[in-house]
Design a protein around this nucleic acid. Structure first.
Lengths: 184, 184
DNA sequence: GTCTATACCTTGATAGAC
DNA sequence: GTCTATCAAGGTATAGAC
C-alpha cells in the first residue's frame, strides 16, 4: 500500500468531513500533495471509488477499535465513553463525522458508496445496541427505552449535535453528549 | 412578488433538502420550469443569494406557524407535537430539513447565508426552550435536564434522525421522535 | 421586467509520457 | 508503477435581446 494512497484517503476523509462530499475536488487533494489532480485518479479512478474506500477505511478503523477495547477488557460503560470521545474530538476539530456528512449527500452517492455507508451505520448501531443490552444486564446502565431505539437516538444525537454545534458558538458540547447518553 | 420567483424558492428548497446545496444547480431549477438557467439568475443573481432567500423564507414560515399556534390557543404540548409533525412529514417525503442539510455544508456557505442559518437555528432553539420552561411550570412536561440542553437535544435528534433514517429502511420513525422528546 | 445566447471557469476523467 | 498534459461536460455568472 503506497504512502501517497494513504495520504489521499486521509485528506479525502478530512475534506468530506469539513467541506462535504460534493464540495471537495481532486484538485483540493492534489494541490495539498503537490501533484496534479490526474495523479489522484491513478490511485482512485473515480470519485465514487475514493468515497467508497474512505468509508471502508472508517469501518475497518471502527472494528479495530472495538477489538482493541475487548482485548483490553473494557466494560460497557468504558466502551461507550470511548465512543463518545471520538465525537468530542470531532467537535474540537470542528469537523462532522463521516456518517453525518455523507448522510446529507446520500441521494447523490453511487450505489456502492451507499451500501458501505449503510453497512457502517448498521455495524455501529448493532454494536451500540449490544453494549446497551449487556450493560443493562450487568446493571452498569439504567434505562427504560428499547435498546434499539436508544442506540439509534444516541447515534443520531452524536451525529447532529456535531452539525448544529458547529453553527453555535459557546456550547458545552461535552455536557450535551452526557445528556444524550444519560444512562444513570 | 412574481410567481416564477416563488417557484424558484420552492424548487430550490426541495433540491437542497434532497440533493444538498452543493449538488443542485440552476440548471436543475430552470429545466423544471422550462426556462434557461440564466433566467433564474435574473431573480437570484448568485446561488448564495438564492440560498439566503430560501433560509429567510423558512424563518418566516416558522414564525408564522408559531403565531398561528398562539392565536389558536395551543398549549405547550400541542405546540411541540406540531413541531414534531413537520419532521414526520419530512421523513415521509424522504427529505432532510433545511437546517440539517445546510449544516453539513456550513463551511462552504457564504457569510450572509451562514448568518441566516444561525439565526434560524437560534430562533427554533429559543422557541423550544421557552415552551419547555413554560410547559414544565404548567406541569405539562416532566423532565430533569436543563431546558436549553433539552431543547438542543430535541432539535439535534430530529435533524439527525432524518439523515440516519433515510439510510435505514424499516424504521419506526414516529416512535423514535416520541422517544426523543420523551416528556412524561 | 423577463428571459436567451454566450462566456468563462472548474470539475471529473482519459490518454499517454516518463 | 507513477504522474503530466489535455479534454469534454457541466457549473456559475454576464451582457444583451425582446
Amino acid at each position: 500500500m503506497s504512502v501517497t494512497r494513504e495520504k489521499i484517503i486521509e485528506l479525502g476523509e478530512n475534506l468530506i468531513r469539513s467541506k462535504g462530499y460534493n464540495a471537495f475536488s481532486y484538485q483540493d487533494i492534489s494541490t495539498e500533495l503537490g501533484i496534479k489532480n490526474a495523479a489522484v485518479h491513478y490511485y482512485f479512478p473515480t470519485k465514487e471509488n475514493l468515497g467508497t474506500s474512505i468509508v471502508k477505511t472508517n469501518i475497518q478503523r471502527f472494528e479495530e477499535m472495538v477489538e482493541n477495547m475487548h482485548s483490553h477488557g473494557f466494560n460497557e460503560r468504558q466502551q461507550l465513553d470511548t465512543f463518545v470521545k471520538i465525537y468530542l474530538k470531532s467537535h474540537r476539530e470542528q469537523k462532522l463525522c463521516i456518517i453525518g456528512s455523507l448522510a446529507s449527500d446520500f441521494n447523490t452517492l453511487n450505489e456502492t458508496t451507499r451500501t458501505e455507508l449503510k453497512r457502517m451505520t448498521e455495524i455501529i448501531l448493532k454494536w451500540l445496541t449490544d453494549i446497551l443490552v449487556t450493560g443493562k444486564e450487568k446493571k452498569l446502565f439504567v434505562f427504560d427505552e428499547e435498546p434499539q431505539s436508544k442506540a439509534f437516538i444516541i447515534l443520531s444525537g452524536m451525529v447532529a449535535s456535531l452539525q448544529v454545534s458547529r453553527m453555535m458558538d459557546k456550547m458545552d458540547y461535552k455536557n450535551v453528549c452526557q445528556t444524550i447518553i444519560s444512562l444513570k
